[in-house]
Design a protein around this nucleic acid. Structure first.
Lengths: 341, 341
DNA sequence: TAATCTGTTGCAAACGTTTGCCGAATGGAG
DNA sequence: CTCCATTCGGCAAACGTTTGCAACAGATTA
């Protein structure tokens, strides 16, 4: 059916090993022979069978990319960047969605293991132990979570949370709320810790609400509780929740940012499209995808297990404004400038 | 290194073929032997190597999913649904992004061909000829495009466009604009044709603008031109463009829907989050993903090349309202009801 | 009792590659 | 002219499976 190395060999009058070498070790074959083989290969439409090659070399030139939820707008840019980057290095990418289920995660890693050279585990929800176990079965790079001894790419959400809190405190807010994300999320823990510390050192109070599903309806549902705390500023686990909260507050006639300021995380596309536009901590998700791919592909060479932390950036838009303790008469821009350390 | 069928055979004292059959044809092996083999397999942590199996059976149990742009919010729900559906049937999914480039599309199909049992081609930008050619090299299902003789899953965007136009005409609009999408898009052509016909039969004028990139900034950039036409209602190729337009109109102080009504396509998540919320034609993208997978997997059995068209639904929200020729005093809801045939 | 059938297992070839090894041919050095 | 090194290409084994065929035992039938 399909044209194989054998067909090319026959058609060009050489042994199959010569054809093989023409493709995988060109310097070992006479330039003349090589061009002849390449010509007939082209003519016949021959393409090497990667699966067969993998069988003997042990390298599949495939990688796996496992995420909690493809439809969560946080992931697509990362998937896209990782796929493009991998393809440029001649790797194909399996993408799988776990629906935030740790059991599915484990099964998926095992199922994919034999078919890939390594797996990118994005925002995994399983325990550290499970991940370390899997790491023994297949090369792994963890994204959005730090585990001792495991290669990882994370966004520095701690720093992001700190600048967000400083921004809010600088604007004159003294009582903040943190809208937690899902249980088991490393990112969530980091943000909570960093925000708590930053609030304390800024002389502000931080009320933690949650856990919540990382979706907009959860943000909307939290509006009532948020208002009940009497806080004047909210930091949300992600933009989806922040946007949900934003809309819900507006529906209740609560002015943003006049009465409540809102800050999100991720800077998904929607955040610049809602009104008021959302102040948020931008994560370099595309860069993270690329870095993770690089790390995975280098893993074979040395055994070094790097851990990189990528810079996050506070993007100040219109959902944050002066709070009750703001310097009199200051505008958002002026006060915000002060927050820039 | 990894545990193979041979290890299991040795450990349980049978021939490798018996182990093989234990997994791929259990009824051919004695229940006693079978349980013994299964036990040692479990104990050793054996997992069949799909690549090796594929080599001999010719079935990889993988499928390819090629989309124009993973980061376009239209696709993730479809990717997610397709992946989940495929996995339930024990298939793994390669995802790849072409960045709207027809050349990359072709290369990708060829590169993936040997490694998959078939490919889902979503919103392809290449010519019909090229697709028909590729179809000879690997089983294909085309999504969002209709080509004679090729299995396909499409959304009935024509019907969607018709209801959108009827809705607008019913509201009293007589001059509409269609904001075209990208060149080469089948969907775009369908919408344009259907909208044109519906407008004519409703006694309204339709001005076509474009082509445009299917992104929000293109919608925003078109605002000026749209206003210059004097039209009172706009149908956009997709929600991204519609939302961009919405914001741009607001920034110019043009009230929506009071002065201009806007309708989008796709019903992406953002559409319900912007204000005014967007009236749009909802596409069953998840269902399309599942249907396409089913169609691809059945293709082997019979040679039947089905073509299914999925229902679309006009979702009326707040970006559309009465136009200049609306029955006096009518509210949006009342007038809209009239449009429901 | 012989012949036939059924259920279970082993044997070996095959899938499409890669790669270590060996021999042939070539060319330069001595 | 001989010897050695180098370059090139063929041979065959290997990767981890599946599967048609044959062998065998025991059960059933005539």
């Amino acid at each position: 059916m399909a044209v194989t190395i054998r067909d090319v060999a026959k058609a060009s009058g050489v042994h199959i090993s010569t054809v093989s070498r023409t493709f995988s070790a060109p310097h070992l074959v006479n330039p003349e022979t090589r061009t002849r083989v390449l010509a007939t290969a082209e003519e016949l439409g021959y393409r090497p069978n990667r699966a067969a090659r993998a069988l003997i070399t042990g390298r599949t030139h495939n990688i796996g990319l496992i995420v909690a939820d493809i439809a969560n707008p946080f992931f697509p840019p990362m998937i896209k960047a990782a796929e493009t980057h991998a393809r440029r290095r001649d790797y194909h990418v399996f993408v799988a969605d776990t629906d935030e289920d740790p059991v599915v995660e484990t099964d998926l890693v095992r199922a994919l293991a034999k078919q890939v050279d390594g797996i990118l585990l994005c925002s995994p929800r399983m325990s550290d132990d499970q991940i370390e176990q899997l790491r023994r079965e297949v090369p792994l790079v963890v994204v959005n979570r730090l585990i001792d001894g495991l290669p990882a790419v994370v966004m520095d959400v701690g720093a992001g949370a700190r600048s967000a809190v400083r921004h809010l405190v600088g604007l004159g807010h003294r009582h903040l709320v943190y809208l937690s994300g899902p249980r088991g999320s490393w990112t969530n823990r980091e943000i909570r810790k960093a925000a708590g510390a930053a609030a304390r050192s800024g002389g502000a109070e931080l009320t933690v609400l949650g856990p919540h599903q990382p979706i907009s309806s959860a943000g909307a549902d939290a509006a009532e509780t948020v208002l009940a705390t009497g806080a004047t500023a909210v930091l949300a686990y992600n933009d989806l929740m922040a946007v949900g909260l934003l809309q819900s507050l507006q529906d209740r006639g609560v002015a943003v940012p006049e009465r409540v300021s809102v800050v999100g995380f991720d800077d998904i596309a929607t955040s610049a499209l809602v009104r008021p536009t959302l102040t948020t901590v931008a994560n370099p998700t595309a860069a993270a995808g690329r870095a993770a791919v690089d790390m995975l592909l280098q893993q074979g060479d040395d055994g070094a297990t790097g851990q990189v932390s990528l810079r996050t950036d506070l993007v100040i838009r219109n959902s944050t404004g002066p709070g009750p303790y703001a310097p009199a008469g200051a505008t958002t821009a002026e006060v915000a400038a002060y927050a820039k350390e």
